[in-house]
Design a protein around this nucleic acid. Structure first.
Lengths: 191, 191
DNA sequence: GGCGACATACCGAACAGTCGGTATCGAGAA
DNA sequence: TTCTCGATACCGACTGTTCGGTATGTCGCC
């Protein structure tokens, strides 16, 4: 059996409530009630409400980072690697849409040190991504008339924005959408 | 003279604090102190804290809508119109960066009816934008293999994301950046 | 002398976090 | 085998504070 389903139950309830009501509008009382546990249980496993929010980020960041490393580790040609990375990050962002909502909406509610930590980990991801583009530019694949930082931001804006408009119940298919957005990006940056 | 600089002072202080600390973490006491007025003055001009937040949106929405109407009203060819609209919305978004931060971070803190109102006005803007793309598609200018909603979302993701990475103190020039992002978008959707 | 534009003291609810407890269990001494 | 003991996993009533909002007063101007 899992070491404790309590932690999972709490985390799930928290993500659910944070994504629908927002972090500030959600009381810990609501969370523990939704999770079917008590406040004592929650404060046994989490330091604070802030800690709860951070754990949501932690999970997403770890997952995406490990995916990134795996894909880059395959050692495929630059174009293929970049393509796969784009598709993957979009797809996992769709898989974790509520987490994404919480993520982009409530980072600023984290305590200063934890905010820094999140920023640091995100920057790591961005740096690897930027590195791929740089390599592609050296190979003559991608345009160089626009600052690399702008190109990177241009891509992540799509990922970021997903939770603001995409609905899994809508007509858009996850896999298809990931390909379409990736295509839009790759066409735009082509040399 | 303006009907009252008090309203302006309060609004400015509010935007400033909301954008740096977040809506929930900012007390009305902080706002009135920063604005150099008292709570009584604030509640004389605003119904509630919620109302204060809404007024920020109100101003942005009105401004962008009026710009949009003006540009479309010129009656230029589709390609030119779409280009101008893109550049304008990016530039004004940069001009109102703190407002944008507040906007995208805290819409969900608004009361239900006001949230609906904001959504409605934004949809209006999107609809006009989508209409331009549709016209362009009929004229054979833009690709049709990707749902129009995705194309629209793809563009507004850039606008949305601006407040998350752009810094006026950074190396990027406002006008140049607007052109670059617009170019990336227009290249991507070209037929 | 009444009305608009504020000022100030205050209220009540909400809420994060605490703290003194209890239940269950595994290991080791008797 | 039984008894003890420490540790882990909770429980839930309580509290100190924060904060949005209000009630009442004041002051100048038409």
């Amino acid at each position: 059996m899992a070491p404790s389903s309590v932690v999972d139950d709490i985390t799930k309830a928290a993500v659910d409530l944070f994504s629908t009501q927002g972090y500030a509008n959600t009381s810990v009382q609501q969370i523990v009630e939704a999770a079917g546990v008590t406040k004592g249980a929650m404060y046994h496993y989490f330091e604070s409400k802030d800690d709860l929010l951070f754990s949501v980020y932690e999970r997403m960041l770890s997952l995406q980072t490990s995916h990134l490393e795996e894909i880059v580790g395959r050692g495929a040609p630059t174009a293929q690697t970049l393509h796969d990375v784009c598709v993957d990050v979009i797809e996992t962002s769709i898989d974790f849409l509520p987490e994404g909502t919480v993520f982009f909406r409530s980072v600023h509610m984290l305590s200063e040190p934890r905010q820094k930590e999140v920023t640091r980990r995100r920057r790591q991801y961005h740096d690897v991504f930027a590195g791929l583009i740089e390599r592609g530019q050296e190979e003559g694949l991608y345009r160089t008339d626009i600052p690399r930082a702008v190109l990177v931001a241009h891509f992540f804006s799509d990922v970021h924005y997903l939770s603001n408009w995409y609905s899994p119940e809508g007509p858009e298919d996850k896999v298809l959408l990931a390909q379409q957005l990736t295509d839009l990006f790759l066409v735009a940056i082509k040399a």
